[in-house]
């Protein structure tokens, strides 16, 4: 399995991840190597095997419907890059 620089750019865009242009080749090489490694598992016959998402075979615990949280806006927004009038600010969203 080998990834092209084009593939890397596409994935990087999906992940909204800036990758330096001069590094794209290296990523393509490294990622291809990793894919070769992980593809080894395709040798294993997994027919009829149930996928395992969690180590514990448990079901989801349910929380009673109670309001337990209080307004902590000031504390939460003290660590925000840009806020105004209680809102988080971002570059204009165009719909």
């Amino acid at each position: 399995m080998s990834l092209t620089t084009d593939d890397v750019n596409k994935i990087a865009h999906l992940a909204r991840l800036g990758v330096d242009i001069q590094d794209v080749d290296t990523y393509a090489h490294d990622l291809s190597g990793i894919l070769d490694l992980v593809t080894q598992m395709s040798q294993l016959n997994t027919e009829g095997v149930a996928p395992m998402a969690h180590p514990m075979e448990q079901s989801q615990r349910l929380r009673p419907d109670r309001v337990t949280e209080t307004n902590m806006r000031e504390k939460f927004q003290a660590i925000a890059p840009q806020v105004e009038a209680g809102l988080y600010l971002v570059p204009k969203v165009i719909e």
Binding site: R63, D65, R66, V67, T68, E69, N71, R73, F76, Q77, A85, G86, L87, Y88
Partner: peptide, 20 residues
């Protein structure tokens, strides 16, 4: 009364981000 995955209120019309 509370959100699907947290204990914050779902009441409509609060000041921005006070129920987050």
């Amino acid at each position: 009364k509370s959100k699907i995955f947290s204990g914050a209120s779902t009441a409509y019309g609060a000041e921005p981000n006070t129920q987050a």
